[in-house]
């Protein structure tokens, strides 16, 4: 046997390392972190300097906006994050969770594991961790800038709100995984998942239903900071967790039954 080389001393290549490499080497982490951090900066700056911006570009029209409040930075961040942030998360997740988008690539992995479900778990968990860290980064940026430019925010509601936002991301990724079980291409997965996620706010116009919807968690950080009791989000949290489990089970079932 030949003498050990540098490659022989490396940690073994596992599916977890594969997914980490997918996130890092394809620079997808930059997309996630960049989008959320940018939204954080824009959220705080936008809230602080909204009056100045309106004055500068408003022309002869006089618009009087109220003095900015600390929660305004979060409102800006969350409203943008619910669109651009989720779009970035769905695109990145579709890249990792569309396991059969390239049949030859899929065949390489599928013929080496006892079940394709083994492939799904690392792809889901690593993408969720990346997305949740990006969300936390964006929230932290908003928080720090808001503290320095406008005023203090309560730590508890921000932390709990961010956590509930991460629960929503877990649900959104499970939606992507489930849609990928029905589609072949990454584009179809992105469009299908976005369609499903956009449906939630539409359903949410009915107040009685809205309190149960996972999408409610995406804006929880604002509501909690404004003083809304955390109990208001218990139902949405439970539904999100149950739906996440159900959607992942559906994705696993579809993957197991699909032919290449």
């Amino acid at each position: 046997m030949s003498a050990p080389t540098a490659t022989d001393r490396r940690p073994p290549m596992t599916l977890w390392r594969l997914e980490r490499a997918r996130l890092v080497r394809t620079h997808r982490w930059l997309l996630l972190a960049g989008v959320y951090a940018s939204l954080g900066v824009l959220g705080a700056l936008g809230a602080r300097y909204l009056n100045e911006i309106i004055e500068r570009f408003g022309g002869e029209v006089t618009i009087v906006a109220p003095e900015p409040q600390p929660v305004d930075g979060l409102i800006q961040f969350v409203s943008n994050g619910a669109q651009l942030g989720i779009l970035a998360v769905v695109v990145v997740a579709a890249g990792a969770l569309s396991l059969d988008a390239k049949p030859e690539l899929s065949a390489f992995l599928r013929t080496k594991v006892s079940s394709p479900v083994v492939l799904l778990l690392p792809a889901y968990v690593v993408t969720l961790l990346g997305s949740a860290v990006a969300l936390a980064l964006g929230t932290a940026v908003t928080w720090v800038l808001t503290e320095s430019l406008i005023g203090a925010l309560s730590a508890g509601p921000v932390l709990l709100g961010t956590l509930l936002g991460a629960v929503f991301l877990a649900f959104a990724l499970a939606v992507v995984a489930a849609v990928a079980g029905f589609t072949r291409s990454q584009t179809a997965t992105v469009l299908g998942a976005l369609g499903a996620l956009l449906l939630l706010p539409a359903v949410g116009v009915v107040d009685a239903v809205a309190v149960w919807l996972p999408s409610r968690l995406a804006t929880a950080v604002v509501a909690l900071t404004e003083g809304q009791p955390a109990g208001e989000f218990l139902r949405a949290t439970l539904v999100s967790l149950a739906a996440t489990a159900a959607l992942l089970a559906l994705a696993a079932r579809r993957l197991s039954r699909r032919e290449l």
């Binding site: 490659t7 490396r10 073994p12 290549m13 596992t14 599916l15 594969l18 490499a21 997918r22 080497r25 394809t26 390239k102 030859e104 690539l105 390489f108 992995l109 080496k112 594991v113």
Partner: peptide, 20 residues
Amino acid sequence: TPQFEPWLTAWEVVDLARHL
């Protein structure tokens, strides 16, 4: 027509197969 993730090295592809 075998295909692999283009950002993996040859060693990583084969070691992944070995590990699995």
